[in-house]
């Protein structure tokens, strides 16, 4: 009975949303978006306008977003914290193919992730995507060797320093040109379509990439080891 009621309520919601959608449907870019599109190239000298919006125009939102990610990862670490005195269950070792393949693929995958977040201002991609690719390289290592212990202190330092660098870049913009995360007057904007261009954007996106990569790697590590602990119980 309850299920039928909730199903009907949701169906009503879907129909209402479908009828509301044309009202919300814009026919052209809004004033803010058309400023980003027509002035973004001059102001930031980066080809990828999405990156300009994420890192520069809405950089403050992105700072809040990496904070949310940090909070949720520390929440996972808190909920799944390891109780002391519990021995870690030994796993059946992974097969030769997985071990060798993971070892071969680890370095190229990390390199690919770094490539994605270094070129964030030129091509599609950036810190979030590159960070996820780096974390999947770490996942390969964890799959190959389940007793692997990640260097948590180093990961924590990397994560904290890159977050600190993000805030520091914002404060430098505040001091130099009067607004948080400002992109003029700090690093020369450089030539369009070169790797070292677009001012502070690639610097911040590399920092975001390192932060997201280390956070997601720590997240995977915590969850995999919590799973091991559970099997040790049963």
């Amino acid at each position: 009975m309850k299920q039928i009621v909730s199903f009907l309520a949701l169906a009503t919601l879907a129909v209402l949303l479908w009828n509301l959608a044309p009202i919300a449907m814009p026919s052209d870019l809004g004033p803010v978006a058309s400023h980003y599109v027509s002035h973004g190239l001059q102001e930031n000298r980066g080809s990828n306008l999405v990156t300009s919006v994420v890192v520069n125009y809405r950089g403050f939102d992105t700072l809040g977003e990496v904070t949310v990610l940090f909070l949720s990862v520390s929440g996972v670490g808190f909920v799944l914290r390891r109780r002391s005195g519990l021995k870690v269950h030994r796993q059946r070792p992974a097969s030769e193919i997985i071990t060798t393949g993971a070892r071969m693929l680890f370095a190229p995958t990390v390199l690919f992730g770094a490539y994605i977040f270094v070129h964030g201002h030129l091509t599609p991609g950036g810190g979030f995507q590159g960070g996820a690719v780096v974390a999947s390289a770490v996942l390969l290592l964890i799959l190959a060797d389940r007793d692997l212990v990640l260097p948590h202190a180093a990961l924590g330092w990397l994560e904290s320093l890159s977050g600190f660098g993000f805030v520091l870049a914002g404060v430098v913009g505040l001091v130099v040109s009067g607004s948080f995360l400002a992109n003029h007057g700090i690093i020369p904007l450089g030539t369009w379509n070169r790797l070292l261009s677009a001012g502070i954007i690639p610097v911040i996106y590399v920092l975001i990439g390192l932060k997201v990569g280390s956070e997601l790697a720590a997240l995977l590590d915590v969850m995999v080891h919590a799973a091991d602990e559970g099997e040790a119980h049963s």
């Binding site: 870019l29 999405v50 919006v53 977003e65 990610l69 909920v79 969850m223």
Partner: peptide, 28 residues
Amino acid sequence: DPVPQALVLTAIVIGVGVTALMLAYVIR
């Protein structure tokens, strides 16, 4: 419009963080 794309870019990453937190509570 680049603005919705930029917002969704960050929303996906927040989504996986929130999902992981929910799953951590489920495991506990």
